[in-house]
Design a protein around this nucleic acid. Structure first.
Length: 1091
RNA sequence: GGGCGACUAGCUCAGUUGGUUAGAGCGCUACGUUCACACCGUAGAGGUCACAAGUUCGAAUCUUGUGUCGCCCACCA
């Protein structure tokens, strides 16, 4: 093709459409476990598993960042010859996805999940999943991600399900899984427990109510009432005690001591507040202490209180949870609805506990009839408060304070959380957590940036048991069937007398033999005495003395159905066993991701080759939830960590420094950016801002679909369904558009001008490539003799080698921004601004043309390979065009000896069919040459001086300038041959070079520092002289130089500096001073001449 | 309350073990369409590196304190 016809703007859309399908069709992304290198040896594996995006919704810019960084490494490693696997997939995200679908179901059809039943709802969610998974995969492909799509997994598919079963079974068998009653965060809308991580706190206006509870039969002089305070009055219906501190005096002492301690180390401005607090404490000691001690004594005596509205008697209890320094010093205890109270209850089980709430958040039958069936925090609350007032135990005038309450909300349904006592499945974390901690402290798993290791270790160090059950329908159902037996006899029909240690084995044997169910290793039984299971439920269960049998089933059907043609489950169900309704926490399946995707528990070649994976790239907010759990799951199941390195990506914030989120409306869809700027620009822009600092603000703009104007997204406009363009005033729709009239409007994209950097860079590269292609016409491959290389060639090759080294090194350290900046600066400021500019002159000289072409082709080739991981599409586009004109490009002879000793420049004939699989550049150390670089710097400096003088004298470019250069002979011998470049790049002609070069009569001059003495540049300005302007320029220079010299003199005259600083630093200063002095002298001379 | 991080040019950010007069992109000013590129080129203006004290011959860089902001964790009768 004629390269002159290439457009002068890079068409990113066309390149994307052209090359992604090509790569896929060639199978470049597919990893074969048995892949061999050219020498027939197995290739070294390099594996990344994608953090599986939730199928909740589309990907946002944070995902784009995360996946770009992964793809950069993957593409680089692929080029480096590794057997590279990027394992893709998606996460079913149990609660999040179900919540989204349920909410939509309710909004659109006014139905709840109970109107559909389990199967119906799950069916709906699968449909949702299909839709969003397709969208997500499309987004990843649009970004250019080179995942091995043939292996894509979903955390709820059969392969993952098998792994989940296996792990659960192993844990169960190992005694690491148990069920118990716990207070959970209850989402009354979704009717499930949610984990602490799925709860957010929101400041809400609320009240602090003070209630009086009557004391039963107080002795004379004793209080007749105790006062308690609460923010949740309705829970009083479930009170089973009121607590007072067992030693209030001591507790006050301690509080006082703590305050003193704090006062001591507190900053001045806080001292006053602390002192006030201490005073309040003193007052309290005086006014309240005697009373509290009396109450304490009463508690010890066993005094009972009357719980108003219920008629129940509840004990006054001595427990340390009651803080004498707070409130009235007494606290109501509602064990079934408050975590701290539950702890109190566990210390004093005799007080019992009363659950007063149904799963849907309404009061249940445990409360007096008049309060039943009321919504806890609204109707029930009103009723309780009203009746307390009626009973004169509460006075709204004096006993109610306004207060901001940090109210817990479910992140999924956005409704308030009710603490609720429920059966819950747990994994014991003590040992598991320890293994995951050891993996990081021993360095088996390295976290980058290092500071994130602290959070990981702190979190695991708490070794809190992991609640794994969710009362949902979307997820892996817990594979446990259970049945309760009231007595041993009931189960054994009187055949077995005792439950001893061998119970489990016998039970297992019995079940298998009785029911002809072999493969007992697929079934695990455990029994739990009522006593253990319901220790916390004494009131309800004290009469019982039976036990519950839990059966964990590894596989539901026998694997050889022709022999054992029946289901274990059927057998169990025949026996009256029922499967647990709960599904597993999503993280339970995500924890297995590096294994399950490779086929575990089967011993697949993939698992053999690619496990452990190499690097994990993820965001910091799931270091604990996901990373830690993958480590412990990997160690538990495989005996090996799942990955050796973890890189934590930066977090992208909006222009206000706020987290981006769908609900705020400040999110960015990567597709918008790709459409406007191109995938390459998106990727390069993201890599460019991935620094160690980790937080990055991305101001967000709307783009008007009508006129293309961009204007800032603000806190005000980001929530609107329609926006009026600031420029053309036409309205457009946003992600919030719901009404038909809004939706009908053209949608405005949300982008950020920060991707202009990447787009401009791509365009620059495109045009540099275009120039190269055009000028490579007639290219002939072949070796270049060192003698034919000009200074600029050697300079470029030296720089290219250094840059290759730096980029490789930066990527190895996850210093993406360094890599991006290095190559940006090189490509733009060195390759384009100098090398290409200089070759222009050489193409006009026939005897220089061939060498220039060969070096140019080689340099472009190397640059494309270095850039490919960051900007895959553009580099492929150019790579393919380059192959048309220069199919073989290198500086060495095919099969011949390397052109320089030690040189590792690839030989001719090795050009790959795609840059995807081209070899990653290796720095050619023999080309690195500091002398050449310094010489080249002289040229750049002289050029700069001429340009500066031209500008300061306002001489238009089209006016040719004459100049002379006075310098030593070696320098002049190097500079003089550069004459064509001065002409081309500055429209200036050197008239004299060397030690005796005379300055023109009327000249503007500059003195530069060369390697061997100074270089004086004198530009003939006789035709243009603007004396005033020149004086101004020189005076400015004189002032700067004087200032500089003064600052150096100050250092050198400081004896301490001369004595203590390293000799080379001192010498450097002396040399510098000498240079500056010479420059100053010549400026003074020039100034004197102008007078 | 505990932990982590940030504060550098109008904006967004680099600045790796302390050592030239602190850099880039965008924006701004002036000039320029010379045939790779106006998504461009050339030149320029613009910074008491949040503040204070300390260590050091020397501090954007190390220490301590202060201020502002952000994130994570815990807790809030």
């Amino acid at each position: 093709m004629d390269f002159k016809d290439l457009p002068s703007q890079y068409d990113h859309g066309a390149a994307q459409q052209r090359w992604y399908p090509y790569w896929e069709s060639k199978g470049y992304f597919h990893a074969d476990p048995g892949a061999k290198d050219a020498a027939g040896k197995p290739k070294k594996p390099y594996t990344i598993v994608i953090p599986p995006p939730n199928v909740t919704g589309a990907l946002h810019i944070g995902h784009a960042l995360n996946n770009t960084l992964q793809d950069i490494l993957i593409r680089q490693k692929r080029m480096q010859g590794f057997n590279t696997l990027w394992m893709p997939g998606t996460d079913h995200a149990g609660i999040a996805t179900q919540a989204v679908v349920e909410r939509r179901l309710f909004e659109e059809e006014k139905k709840t999940r109970h109107d559909l039943d389990r199967e119906g709802l799950v069916d709906r969610i699968w449909k949702w999943k299909e839709q969003y998974e397709a969208r997500i995969l499309g987004q990843l492909k649009a970004m250019g991600c080179s995942c091995d799509w043939e292996r894509a997994r979903f955390t709820l598919d059969d392969v993952c399900a098998k792994a989940v079963r296996e792990w659960f079974f192993r844990l169960f068998k190992d005694g690491k899984i148990y069920r118990g009653k716990r207070l959970v965060n209850w989402d009354t809308f979704l009717q499930t427990a949610v984990s602490d991580d799925e709860v957010f706190h929101e400041p809400t206006k609320g009240h602090f109510w003070h209630f009086k509870y009557p004391v039963i039969d107080p002795k004379p002089g004793e209080p007749t009432h105790v006062t308690i305070a609460t923010t949740r009055p309705e829970t009083m219906l479930g009170d089973t005690a009121v607590a007072v501190h067992p030693d209030p005096a001591k507790a006050l002492d301690r509080a006082d001591a703590e305050l003193r301690e704090k006062l001591h180390s507190a900053p001045a401005k806080e001292k006053a507040a602390i002192e006030a607090e201490m005073e309040a404490l003193m007052a309290r000691r005086k006014n309240l202490l005697p009373q509290l001690e009396k109450l304490r004594d009463m508690a010890l005596r066993g005094v009972m209180l009357e719980l108003p509205l219920t008629g129940r008697k509840i004990p006054l209890l001595a427990d340390e949870w009651a803080k004498p320094e707070l409130g009235s010093g007494c606290v109501k205890i509602t064990p079934a609805h408050d975590a701290n109270d539950y702890d109190v209850y566990q210390r004093h089980p005799e007080i019992g506990l009363i659950n007063i709430m149904k799963v849907e958040g309404l009061t249940n039958d445990a409360v007096p009839e008049k309060y039943r069936g009321l919504k806890m925090h609204t109707k029930a609350r009103e009723a309780v408060v009203a009746d307390m007032e009626a009973a004169s135990l509460y006075n709204p005038e004096t006993d109610r304070e306004d207060r901001e309450i940090d109210l817990a909300h479910s992140d999924r349904s956005k409704t308030p959380i009710e603490p609720y006592l429920a059966d819950q499945w747990f994994v014991k974390m003590d040992e598991l957590a320890q293994t995951a901690m050891d993996a990081v402290t021993s360095g088996q798993v390295k976290i980058t940036p290092e500071r994130y290791a602290k959070g990981y270790l702190d979190w695991l160090g708490e070794k809190r048991d992991w609640p794994i059950g969710r009362q949902l329908w979307w997820g892996h159902r817990i594979p446990v069937w259970s049945r309760h037996y009231d007595s041993e006899q009931e189960y054994w029909g009187g055949g077995l007398k005792t439950l001893d240690d061998s119970f489990q084995d016998e039970l297992s044997d019995r079940l298998s033999s009785l029911e002809k169910c072999h493969e007992p290793q697929q079934v695990c039984l455990r029994y739990v005495h009522d006593d253990d299971l319901t220790k916390t439920f004494r009131e309800e269960s004290s009469a019982k003395c039976g036990f519950t049998v839990f059966v964990c089933v590894l596989r539901e059907a026998n694997e050889a159905p022709d022999v054992y043609d029946h289901h274990i489950v059927e057998l169990l169900e025949k026996q009256g066993f029922v499967q647990t309704d709960d599904v597993l926490d999503t993280w339970f399946s995500s924890a297995l991701w590096p294994m399950s995707t490779l086929g575990w528990p089967d011993e697949t070649p993939e698992l053999e080759t690619f496990y452990p994976t190499t690097t994990l790239i993820t965001s910091r907010d799931i270091i604990t939830l996901w990373v830690a759990r993958m480590v412990l799951a990997g160690l538990y199941n495989m005996g090996e960590v799942p990955f050796h390195e973890v890189y934590i990506t930066p977090k992208i914030l909006d222009g206000y420094g706020e987290t981006m989120s769908k609900s705020k409306g400040n999110g960015v869809d990567p597709i918008d950016v790709i459409e406007k700027f191109g995938a390459d620009a998106l990727r390069f822009g993201l890599a460019y801002l991935t620094t160690d600092t980790q937080d990055v603000k991305l101001p967000v703009d709307f783009e008007c679909p009508h006129c293309g104007a961009q204007f800032a997204q603000t806190k005000k406009n980001r929530q609107l369904p329609r926006i009026e363009c600031e420029k053309c005033k036409k309205p457009f729709s946003t992600q919030w558009a719901e009404k038909p009239e809004d939706k009908a409007l053209a949608r405005g994209a949300v982008v950020s001008e920060r991707f202009e950097l990447g787009r401009n860079f791509c365009n620059k590269l495109w045009n540099a490539s275009r120039f190269s292609l055009i000028n490579l016409e007639g290219y002939e491959p072949g070796a270049v003799a060192d003698n034919d290389l000009l200074i600029e060639d050697r300079w470029l090759l030296s720089r290219l080698s250094t840059v290759t080294e730096q980029v490789t090194d930066s990527l190895a350290k996850y210093r993406y921004a360094d890599a991006a900046r290095t190559i940006y600066d090189f490509a733009w400021n060195e390759f384009c601004s100098f090398y290409i500019e200089m070759t222009k002159a050489r193409f006009a000289v026939p005897e220089q043309r061939t060498t220039a072409q060969r070096v140019l082709a080689h340099a472009l080739d190397t640059l494309l390979r270095l850039l490919h991981p960051m900007i895959p599409f553009l580099t492929e586009e150019v790579w393919q065009l380059l192959a048309q004109v220069a199919p073989e490009r290198s500086l060495s002879e095919p099969g011949g000896p390397p052109p320089r000793s030690g040189s590792r420049t690839p030989r001719l004939g090795q050009t790959a069919e795609s840059v995807c699989i081209a070899s990653w550049p290796v720095p050619d150390k023999a080309r690195q040459d500091a002398t050449i670089e310094a010489q080249f710097a002289n040229f750049q400096a002289v050029l700069g001086a001429v340009r500066e003088i031209r500008k300061s004298q306002n001489i238009p470019f089209k006016e040719e300038l004459l100049f002379s250069v006075r310098c030593d002979t070696p320098t002049s011998m190097r500079l003089e041959p550069m004459q064509p470049y001065f002409s081309k790049m500055a429209n200036a002609t050197g008239t004299a070079w060397g030690p005796s070069a005379a300055a023109p009569h009327i000249a503007a001059s500059a003195t530069l520092t060369g390697q061997s003495g100074s270089i004086e540049v004198h530009v003939d300005v006789s035709r243009f002289i603007d004396v005033a302007a020149e004086r101004k320029r020189l005076e400015k220079q004189r002032d700067e130089l004087t200032k500089f010299i003064k600052s150096i003199d100050a250092k050198l005259s400081n004896a301490a500096f001369v004595d203590k600083a390293p000799a080379d630093v001192v010498q450097q200063q002396r040399d510098k001073r000498a240079e500056l002095a010479a420059q100053l002298a010549s400026v003074e001379t020039a100034l004197a001449k102008l007078k």
